[in-house]
Computed example of a mutant assay.
Amino acid sequence: MIGSVANMLAHVKNCSKARKVLIYIPYSKFKFNLLLAFERYGFVKRVSLLRYSTNRSEILIELAYNGYYNMIQDIVQVSKPGQRIYWKKKQLRVKHQIGTYFLSTSNGIKTNLDSTCVGGEVICNLV
């Protein structure tokens, strides 16, 4: 599961650096929810689901730009298949963290900026 998320994050990062506007990636429920969280925090302009048949679907991502500048400067995958990283609620509020961390919690995908986040597996960091 994390391997396909890593591929998606690398694809979004590379397309952002290349100043592409639209990206198509294979559908999975976890990737779709993660991209909806990116959209909620303004890193992505629009996310939509394209269903071709009952077995084949894709996610269409429209990247957000502020004038000439990308809203996504860098994406760093924190949890990897060989080493999972989990944070408790105390670790979310550390002041020296730069960027927005996205966590997979029992209540869905949350960020370190979310007041309702109680901790979970750290998926990625967006700057």
Score class of each variant (00 low, 15 high):
Gly82Trp: 03
Gln91Asp: 14
Leu49Tyr: 10
Val94Pro: 00
Cys117Arg: 07
Gly108Ser: 11
Met8Gly: 01
Leu126Arg: 02
Leu22Arg: 12
Val47Cys: 09
Arg51Pro: 00
Gly99Asp: 02
Asn107Arg: 14
Lys89Thr: 14
Ser115Leu: 10
Arg51Gly: 01
Lys95Ile: 08
Ile23Cys: 03
Ile59Cys: 08
Lys20Met: 14
Ser57Arg: 14
Lys90Thr: 09
Gln77Asn: 04
Ala18Asp: 04
Phe43Ser: 04
Glu121His: 05
Leu60Met: 14
Met8Val: 10
Arg40Thr: 07
Arg19Trp: 01
Leu50Glu: 14
Tyr86Met: 04
Glu62Ser: 10
Pro81Gly: 06
Leu49Thr: 09
Ile109Glu: 01
Ile123Pro: 06
Tyr24Cys: 03
Thr54Trp: 07
Leu126Ala: 11
Trp87Arg: 09
Met1Gln: 15
Pro26Gln: 13
Asn55Trp: 10
Ala37Arg: 13
Glu58Arg: 11
Phe102Glu: 07
Leu36Ile: 11
Lys88Pro: 03
Lys95Asn: 11
Cys117Tyr: 01
Gln83Phe: 13
Lys95Gln: 13
Asp74Met: 11
Ile75Trp: 05
Met71Pro: 03
Ala6Gln: 09
Ile109Lys: 03
Asn7Phe: 12
Gly42Tyr: 07
Gln73Asp: 13
Arg40His: 08
Leu9Asn: 12
Glu62Tyr: 09
Val5Ala: 08
Lys29Asp: 13
Gly108Ile: 08
Gly108Arg: 08
Asp114Ile: 06
Ile123Thr: 07
Glu39Leu: 05
Tyr24Ala: 09
Val76Glu: 15
Ser48Asp: 14
Thr116Glu: 15
Leu103Glu: 04
Met1His: 11
Leu22Ser: 04
Val78Ala: 02
Val47Trp: 01
Arg84Ala: 05
Ala18Thr: 10
Ile61Tyr: 01
Leu113Glu: 08
Phe32Cys: 06
Ala10Pro: 00
Asn33Met: 13
Val94Thr: 11
Val122His: 01
Lys31Cys: 13
Ala6Asn: 06
Leu36Ser: 09
Ser104Tyr: 12
Tyr52Asp: 12
Tyr101Pro: 02
Ile2Pro: 00
Lys110Phe: 12
Leu113Met: 13
Asn55Gly: 15
Arg56Ile: 14
Ile123Ala: 03
Lys29Arg: 15
Val127Gln: 14
Tyr65Gln: 02
Val21Glu: 13
Leu103Gln: 04
Glu121Lys: 07
Leu50Lys: 15
Tyr86Ser: 09
Ile72Val: 13
Glu62His: 05
Phe32Ile: 06
Val44Asp: 04
Val5Glu: 12
Ser48Lys: 14
Leu9Tyr: 13
Lys90Ser: 10
Arg40Ile: 04
